[in-house]
Write a protein that binds this DNA or RNA. Structure first.
Lengths: 199, 199
DNA sequence: GAGGTTACTAAGCGCTTGCTTAGAATGGGG
DNA sequence: CCCCATTCTAAGCAAGCGCTTAGTAACCTC
């Protein structure tokens, strides 16, 4: 009974199913998507889905978790690599915006399909979300404390920054007139204004 | 055969069903809600729903349409009653924010359940959305043209203003630390910064 | 209070759902 | 080339879905 549970073959199939699920969930929502939709899009019979995943909800959880973790990593990396709060804000808003535009399908599931998660999975995801919120809030407060930001309500400013980035996933379409970089560049300037960064 | 098709009794029942549908759709999404959920919440048998409404999708459309129309009216009224672009921005951002917080259940359906609409209904809704977007964009451009706003990318600024307001419906909870007025007041100041309003 | 319209329900139809079972291909190691 | 675990499918089950039908209760008008 050799443990060959993670051979490339199985991994590739799992990945195909996940990719199909991301597309379907983003387009029609979790409840609007059937397991047959996902399996068919991945080129398999409905039953094959259950060889690789426990349930439809687990598929959502895997997508949601890796998406949240990726966002948290992105936020932490952008902030850590910056020498000061202004540079940190620039890079985190830029990267956050680019990500929410370019991977808007994944980001839509991350932000709009939370209610379909089981209680336990929801609790796990909430922790990651709190960490993301905390990073942004701490950055704004650090800038205010250092005297390089001028924001009368730092918590509201931090909420607005997060909100602007997340909502890109709702309205952005690759067929539109802006590239992810266009939006990111514009939003970086707006973010500096929001926190009252000194010129 | 007297036309008593809009007696108060029927209207009240219709309204009860609509209210139950708003709550259910906002909480679990259109596809996550069953007609039995709605009918039970309204205190009726599932069949009674179909006495007053053609289908579950029509229920969504009625909610979405009246919600969109209400938002458009709100935006137009706020702008029309103001003497200049700065005052108009203040009042429209304020009212928009208060509405998306206070009626966050209705606003969630308006903004996050569009994909469940039929093609015809979707087309009708899209027109209203375009009108709302147009009002905000025109206001920003008017302010820039009048020299009272300083925004390098007016379209991006307008998108950000709308986005900030809409996303309130996603994150706002009445149990939180802020009242709708708190958020609105904070967002008005952020909006002035975003468009570069001269002090 | 009879007549006729409106408001509602009990029951269920046909279909789809998430998921399971039983068994057929598939493919690498000895 | 055979073994046998792994990967997949055909078929289908129980439950739930949106919605309909047939008939009862409630109500207003005269």
């Amino acid at each position: 009974m050799p443990d060959t549970s993670d051979l490339p073959r199985a991994d590739a199939t799992r990945a195909r199913l996940l990719k199909a699920a991301v597309t379907a969930f983003a387009e029609k929502g979790f409840h609007g998507t059937t397991t047959r939709d996902i399996a068919t899009a991945a080129g398999m019979s409905p039953a094959a889905l259950y060889v690789h995943h426990k349930s439809k909800e687990e598929l959502l959880f895997l997508i949601s978790k890796s998406g949240h973790e990726r966002t948290l990593r992105l936020v932490r990396a952008a902030i850590a690599d910056a020498p000061d709060p202004v540079a940190a804000l620039r890079s985190v808003v830029h990267d956050f915006a680019v990500h929410h535009a370019r991977d808007n399908t994944g980001a839509r599931i991350v932000n709009y399909e939370l209610a379909a998660l089981s209680d336990e999975h929801m609790a796990e995801i909430r922790q990651i979300r709190r960490a993301i919120d905390g990073e942004i809030r701490a950055l704004v407060e650090r800038g205010v404390a250092a005297g390089v930001f001028d924001a009368p309500h730092p918590k509201i400013a931090a909420t607005a920054l997060l909100s602007l980035g997340i909502d890109i996933a709702r309205w952005y379409r690759a067929s539109g007139e802006w590239t992810p970089e266009d939006i990111a560049a514009g939003y970086v300037e707006l973010a500096l204004r929001i926190v009252g960064a000194h010129p």
